[in-house]
């Protein structure tokens, strides 16, 4: 993928020759001026793309795996093949999967390639957690729902899925941080997201400020996403906290 960086200047983002860029030329650990100059053109767009990539992948992965989990919940034989296939997808290292998808027709160096690979890493985690969450709903609770005259569908939507929420959101947490991490590697394929300034900062000569800022943004994004999902879970399942107290 050296092609991607062919257009970049020899020392990317180091700045020009005036004394204003002394920090960049000395390649200090952190040059605040560089950050403020490049925030709007490099860093912010990369962050936005990263969030987009992540949201799309987690959303598609969530819909697919929920559909699969609901199917497996009713029809047991579905579980095993889905587990085996998603487990193999999960095992293939990201760098390899991106490259394996690239030559396929319709993929290439595109966002599609990145997203398909990212989605494939969410499936195992989301499928397993959702299915386990549903299976762990006590039989008495299901019987009670039926006793109240609920149909299968009503019981699923109003009783079983809400009770499975903690497990489902726990799955979403791992899936989300996994995708945020792998989306940085995906920059190799589609040259967007926070991986792209990281790769640019390293492609010709190591430019420290960009590495630290872009890397730090990816770390903070992952921690923030994880924290938001914890808050979401507390919001959606207040009873789990009431019991803990």
């Amino acid at each position: 993928m050296t092609v991607v960086f062919a257009a970049a200047p020899v020392i990317p983002n180091f700045g020009g020759g005036s004394s204003q860029f002394a920090c960049e030329r000395a390649n200090r650990l952190f040059c605040p001026n560089w950050v403020s100059r490049n925030w709007a053109t490099v860093l912010w767009p990369a962050l936005r793309q990263h969030v987009e990539l992540t949201l799309i992948a987690v959303a598609i992965g969530f819909v697919l795996s929920t559909a699969l989990a609901l199917t497996a919940y009713r029809r047991h034989w579905v579980e095993r093949p889905v587990l085996i296939i998603t487990a193999i997808l999960y095992t293939i290292p990201s760098l390899a999967l991106f490259e394996l998808l690239e030559p396929l027709p319709g993929f290439g160096l595109s966002r599609t390639t990145a997203e398909v690979a990212l989605v494939s890493y969410t499936l195992l985690i989301l499928f397993r957690n959702t299915l386990t969450g549903l299976r762990e709903v006590p039989a008495e609770v299901r019987d009670a729902a039926r006793g109240m005259g609920m149909s299968d569908r009503q019981s699923l939507l109003r009783v079983e899925l809400p009770l499975a929420l903690p497990a489902i959101i726990a799955g979403l947490r791992i899936a989300t941080v996994t995708v945020i991490s792998l989306a940085t590697v995906a920059s190799l394929i589609d040259n967007e997201g926070l991986g792209s300034p990281i790769l640019a900062a390293i492609s010709n000569e190591v430019f420290k400020t960009e590495l630290i800022v872009a890397g730090g943004m990816a770390v903070l994004l992952a921690l923030l996403a994880d924290g938001l999902l914890v808050l979401l879970q507390r919001r959606l399942t207040p009873w789990t906290r009431a019991r803990a107290v």
């Binding site: 941080v177 190591v206 420290k208 400020t209 890397g215 730090g216 770390v219 992952a222």
Partner: peptide, 22 residues
């Protein structure tokens, strides 16, 4: 452990390069 696992690997490697070099 859970928070730690959220760390993106390429980002950790990149930050490491800035401090320790390649």
């Amino acid at each position: 452990g859970n928070i730690w696992r959220a760390l993106p690997s390429l980002a950790v490697l990149a930050i490491g390069v800035a401090f320790l070099g390649i």
